[in-house]
Design a protein around this nucleic acid. Structure first.
Lengths: 353, 353
DNA sequence: CGAATTTACGGGTACGTACCCGAAACCCTT
DNA sequence: AAGGGTTTCGGGTACGTACCCGTAAATTCG
């Protein structure tokens, strides 16, 4: 341990500019009360010295607490998925809490648009400095972020996005490519030449924006290959197992020659359960997300691959993106695509969500 | 932004204990000069209040700079691999520089044990507070860390490890499982029943510890499957392309029925180059590391999969592990295994090394 | 042109912790 | 009991920045 630390600070700037520290401070924070002449002089010196403020001292001296709000679906039995982003958000908060950042947690019900609207309103009442949200319901989100824009509150989308919006950043998967990869993996595992594939879409809500991208990517792979496989799709609008079993059963009776199934979201364990119950072990199965149920079927070999987009990291990075802009005023990427991770029996043990 | 912040600090502790701030400070840092009675009283209050020191204020007030040293192979044309950990280390440094952490960078030549020894000595001369290193040369490393142990300098291994040592942490791959996964991927892609596999080990140094684990994992997969594939191995001790071409050519003449090749390190691009030159497009090829050359052959389809262990993150986490212990005195995991990432044509674009 | 504003700026304190320095209290000799 | 040494402790300043408050200078206005 040595006694280094010769960094220049406001004091040195003030000395060089023949002004007081307070004036330098005003310039740094673009506050009023400084003549253009002095302002320019000080800015020049700041430029020249490449002054970097000491965040420690800055946050320490600042009495302000930055309030962030987070609006994501509550994790239900049906979708444990959102536990992961929440973990990431919590981790981020515990890291930056000491820097005076506080995060208010708001949850909404995935099956209830009104709950989203209500929570969004609650956030706006709180006068927060930044928002991290999952724009699950497009219309409601647009309404919400209109208010954010008016009050210049930055907001970050995670997991899914709405294009052409003024969001500070989108942090989540590139869905098209994700579908593409799934197709590649299925193809790689299929023996023999001609095949029939089944896309299984299990979801209550009809998703007009996100889901189609996955399917487009999936189909695009085969187009690129000049390979015209038979691809059929079923939509299951009731997420309970009974419904999944029934619909799958029907579909597989109609197409007994299906070689591989691609489930477009995390409900792949339901499909796996069905396949296992029917002893259909030879069919390839790919789905989404590192969830306990899915992992079980991965271990037992019913699910061949899970595609993951690091949900925990999405939450973490989302918070950090807001932190970066609000505290350091540093810019963040407008689109930060998560890696498209392949989880399988051989590597699930070490996967970091 | 509100005016929160009601956290208790040393001041409050001092008030409750009827002592001065300085005495509380002595207790917190286990310095001498405090009677057992006062020490106990203060410690009790600290416990009771669950006092968390304010890192900002702490680092700000401390005039000390923590000096870390890093000792990794220099990135050469032959192995660009080490650029990635270096990036991670640099990223970590830039994040914690303002907290008074400084990292001295030492590089050694992968083909020269003496350079390792020399640099190690240089580090010891500098009286550093912590070391991050790649224990490439076992004997030399053991010698080095003996001194570290004597001076109680914590050290972290990245990328590879030496078992049964007093290292603070190992951050890197679980090689056995990594080989296992490779086997799984190859099997998944092989059409038809019976196959012949070729393990290609290209390396100047004979590695007695790390490499065997990969091969053991690889073979273990087939044992688990009850699948006795023919597995042959060649060792290429000259890393230049000419040598690789010659040896591979020989091996494939002898075993023209090889279906798949597994290259046990990042030199897979040499093998890919050979296969491409011979138009052997139908053979599966798996190797290691997200390097530009490898990615090219991944794109062109010669390489089917690359296995990666997030080298950049290894560097980053290695630094952070030292930072955590030295600044926060918090414990870190003795073994932190990196995820075993699968990179392929469909997802390489979004891979984060 | 003097008074009332407004604008421009400096002094000084606070944030929570680290650590120097000096003083009081205690202990042991002779 | 006096002297010297050691242990225990408190006062006070510093770290670099934020921001309050007061004042001098510049500007506006009647």
């Amino acid at each position: 341990m040595k006694h280094d630390k010769e960094n220049i600070g406001v004091k040195e700037i003030a000395r060089r500019a023949n002004v007081s520290i307070a004036t330098v401070d005003r310039v740094i924070h673009n506050r009023t009360g400084v003549s253009d002449k002095t302002r320019n002089k000080i800015n020049a010196i700041i430029q020249e010295l490449d002054y970097q403020p000491n965040i420690l001292a800055s946050r320490l001296a600042s009495k302000k607490t930055i309030h962030l709000a987070m609006l994501i679906p509550s994790a239900s039995d049906e979708t444990q998925f959102w536990e992961a982003p929440l973990r990431g958000i919590r981790r981020a908060e515990s890291e930056i809490r000491q820097y005076g950042i506080h995060i208010d947690m708001y949850f909404f019900d995935l099956n209830d648009k009104e709950s989203f609207r209500k929570q969004a309103r609650a956030i706006l009442d709180q006068k927060v400095n930044g928002v991290l949200l999952s724009p699950t319901f497009v219309e409601e989100t647009v309404e919400f972020i209109k208010s954010c824009n008016q009050q210049s509150i930055p907001y970050v989308f995670i997991d899914s996005t709405i294009p052409q919006q003024n969001n500070l950043s989108y942090i989540g998967p590139h869905l098209f490519q994700s579908g593409y990869l799934s197709a590649q993996l299925l193809t790689y595992g299929l023996k023999g030449p001609s095949h029939k594939l089944l896309i299984v879409n299990i979801s209550k809500e009809v998703d007009n924006f996100n889901y189609p991208q996955i399917e487009a990517g999936f189909r695009s792979f085969f187009q690129d290959q000049g390979d015209s496989k038979a691809i059929i799709r079923i939509d299951i609008r009731q997420t309970g197992y009974a419904s999944v079993r029934e619909e799958l059963s029907k579909a597989l009776q109609q197409h007994p020659d299906v070689d591989a199934l691609f489930v477009t979201n995390s409900r792949v364990s339901s499909v796996a359960r069905f396949l296992a119950s029917q002893s259909l072990h030879d069919k390839l199965l790919i789905g989404y997300d590192y969830l306990p149920d899915n992992i079980e079927y991965l271990k037992s070999g019913t699910i061949d691959f899970l595609i993951c987009h690091k949900p925990e990291e999405q939450g973490y990075r989302g918070v950090m993106a807001l932190y970066q802009t609000l505290v350091f005023s540093s810019s963040v990427e407008k689109e930060y695509f998560m890696p498209i991770d392949i989880v399988t029996r051989g590597n699930y043990e070490f996967y970091r969500n």
